[in-house]
Amino acid sequence: MPPYTPEELALPSKKYEYLDHTADVQLHSWGDTLKEAFEQCGIAMFGYMTELETVDIRQNPEIEATGHDLESLLFNFLNELLFLFSSDPFVVCSKLDITEFSTEGEELRIKCKCYGEEFALGKHPQGTEVKAITYSAMQIINDTENNKFELFVIIDI
Rank of each mutant, 00 (worst) to 15 (best):
D156M: 02
H28Q: 11
H28K: 15
E62C: 04
N147W: 08
E36M: 13
T50D: 02
I157K: 00
A44V: 08
K148P: 04
K95Y: 11
T144R: 07
L11P: 10
S86N: 13
Q59T: 14
T5W: 10
V130S: 00
P89L: 13
G105L: 12
I57Q: 02
E80L: 09
P12K: 10
Y135K: 08
G105W: 09
D88K: 14
L27P: 02
H124R: 02
A44Q: 02
D156N: 00
F101I: 12
V25Y: 01
S13H: 10
A37W: 06
P61C: 07
F46I: 00
L70N: 11
E145A: 14
E100V: 13
M49A: 03
T5I: 08
Y115C: 02
E17W: 13
Y16S: 07
Y48T: 00
D69H: 09
D32Q: 14
Y4E: 07
A23F: 11
A10P: 05
K14A: 11
N147C: 11
D88V: 15
T99D: 10
A10W: 06
L27S: 02
E7F: 06
H21M: 09
F152N: 03
T134D: 06
L81Y: 12
D143H: 11
S86C: 06
E51C: 01
K123N: 06
L70V: 15
D20E: 15
S29T: 11
E106Q: 13
G105F: 15
G47N: 03
C112S: 03
L70S: 09
L27W: 01
G47S: 12
C112A: 04
V92S: 12
L84V: 13
Y135P: 05
L11W: 02
I57M: 05
G47L: 01
F85H: 13
F75Y: 15
S86G: 12
T66K: 08
T50A: 04
S136A: 12
Y4A: 14
Y4R: 03
S102V: 11
Y135E: 10
L96W: 02
W30T: 09
V92G: 08
G31R: 01
R109I: 09
L151M: 14
G122L: 10
I141P: 02
F152C: 05
Q126T: 09
F75I: 07
M45L: 02
E150P: 06
I43V: 12
F90S: 13
E118G: 07
V153H: 00
H68Y: 13
Q59F: 13
N79F: 15
E100M: 07
P6H: 03
T134I: 05
F38A: 00
S94T: 11
K14Y: 03
A137E: 12
I141F: 06
R109F: 15
S86T: 06
A137V: 14
L121W: 10
G31D: 12
V25M: 05
L82D: 09
D88L: 14
E118A: 10
F119Y: 14
V25D: 00
E51W: 00
K113Q: 04
G42V: 02
P2C: 09
N76Q: 12
S94E: 05
E8N: 01
P6S: 06
I110C: 05
L151E: 07
S72V: 10
A37D: 11
H28C: 12
E39V: 04
F149R: 04
H124K: 07
D20P: 14
Y4Q: 04
S87P: 01
A23L: 05
Q139Y: 09
C114N: 00
K15E: 13
A65H: 03
F83P: 01
N147H: 11
I98R: 04
I43T: 00
Y18F: 15
